[in-house]
Amino acid sequence: KELVLALYDYQEKSPREVTMKKGDILTLLNSTNKDWWKVEVNGRQGAVPAAYVKKL
């Protein structure tokens, strides 16, 4: 499985998103959308802005 690093804090704004903190390591589930990537963090799945994460 592919991992990404959170470059910034992000507070979810809808139920389809997830909150992450700078430095979090997230499991990347889907990166086909260039703006929003689906990730899993702390057992929750949701979208985060692609510009806020970097593939490891």
Rank of each mutant, 00 (worst) to 15 (best):
W36G: 02
G46K: 05
K21V: 10
N33C: 11
G43A: 04
V4C: 14
A50R: 09
N42E: 09
A51E: 12
L5G: 02
A50Q: 05
L7G: 01
T32L: 11
Y10E: 00
K21N: 09
T32P: 04
K38P: 02
L56S: 03
R16D: 14
P49V: 03
N30T: 08
K34W: 08
T32F: 10
E2Y: 12
A47F: 15
K54C: 15
S31I: 09
V41Y: 11
K55G: 05
A50C: 07
K1F: 14
V18R: 00
K55W: 08
V53F: 05
L29C: 08
T19M: 04
W37M: 04
Y10L: 01
L5V: 15
E17A: 06
V4S: 03
K34P: 14
D9R: 02
V48D: 01
K1L: 14
K38T: 15
I25L: 09
M20G: 01
I25V: 11
T27L: 14
D24E: 11
W37G: 01
D24I: 03
R44N: 06
P15H: 11
Y10K: 00
N30W: 07
S14R: 07
V41N: 13
V4I: 07
V53W: 00
A50M: 05
D9H: 06
P49Y: 04
L7R: 04
K22G: 04
L28K: 00
Q45S: 12
E17R: 05
L56C: 15
E17S: 07
A47V: 15
N30V: 09
V53P: 02
A50L: 02
K13W: 05
P49I: 03
W36A: 03
L26S: 01
P49E: 03
K22N: 04
L26N: 00
K1Y: 13
L5F: 10
G46N: 02
L26H: 00
K22A: 13
N30S: 13
R44A: 06
L5E: 11
K38H: 15
V48L: 02
A50N: 02
A50D: 02
A51I: 11
K13I: 07
P49C: 06
L56M: 10
K34T: 11
L3Y: 15
D9T: 05
S14K: 07
E17N: 06
N33H: 12
G46I: 10
V41G: 08
A47S: 14
D9A: 07
V18L: 14
T32I: 11
Y52T: 08
K21W: 09
K34C: 11
G43S: 06
A50S: 12
E12W: 06
L56F: 10
W36Y: 08
K54G: 09
K54Q: 14
N30R: 06
D35Y: 15
R44V: 09
E2V: 14
L26V: 07
Q45I: 15
Y10G: 00
W36T: 03
L28M: 03
R44D: 04
E17L: 05
N42M: 09
L28F: 03
E12V: 06
W36H: 03
I25H: 04
P15F: 10
S31H: 10
I25F: 06
V48Y: 01
P49T: 02
K38V: 15
R44H: 08
Q11R: 11
K34S: 12
R16M: 14
V48S: 00
V39M: 01
K34A: 13
V18H: 04
G23M: 02
L56E: 04
Q11D: 13
V53N: 01
L7H: 02
L7Q: 03
D35K: 13
E17Y: 06
N33F: 07
S31P: 09
K38C: 15
N30Q: 11
A50F: 02
T19W: 05
T32R: 09
G23K: 02
V41K: 14
Q11K: 14
V53M: 06
E17K: 04
S31G: 12
E2H: 12
L3F: 15
W37D: 01
T32Y: 10
T32N: 13
W37L: 05
T19L: 03
Y8H: 11
K13M: 11
S31M: 11
A50H: 03
L3N: 06
V41D: 03
M20Q: 01
L26I: 08
D24V: 04
L56K: 03
T19H: 05
K13Y: 05
A51D: 10
G46F: 13
K22L: 06
K55D: 05
K38F: 15
V53D: 02
T32C: 13
Y8Q: 13
V48T: 02
P15K: 10
K34Y: 08
V53A: 02
G23R: 01
L29H: 06
W36I: 04
A50T: 07
R44L: 07
A47W: 15
W37I: 07
E12H: 09
K1A: 12
Q45V: 15
T27S: 08
V39I: 07
Y8K: 13
L28N: 00
A47K: 13
A6I: 03
Q11F: 14
V4A: 13
Q11A: 13
K38Q: 15
V41P: 00
N42K: 09
S14P: 06
D24C: 07
Y8N: 08
E12R: 13
E12Q: 14
T19P: 06
S31W: 09
K22R: 12
E12M: 13
N42T: 04
S31T: 11
R16P: 06
E17T: 08
E12C: 14
D35Q: 11
E40N: 04
T19Q: 04
Y52H: 07
E2G: 10
E2F: 12
V41Q: 10
G46R: 04
Y8V: 11
S14D: 11
D9V: 03
Y8C: 15
N30C: 13
D9C: 06
E2Q: 14
L3W: 13
W36N: 02
K21L: 08
I25P: 00
W37E: 01
G23Q: 02
Y10P: 01
K54T: 13
K13T: 13
K55R: 13
A50E: 04
R16Q: 14
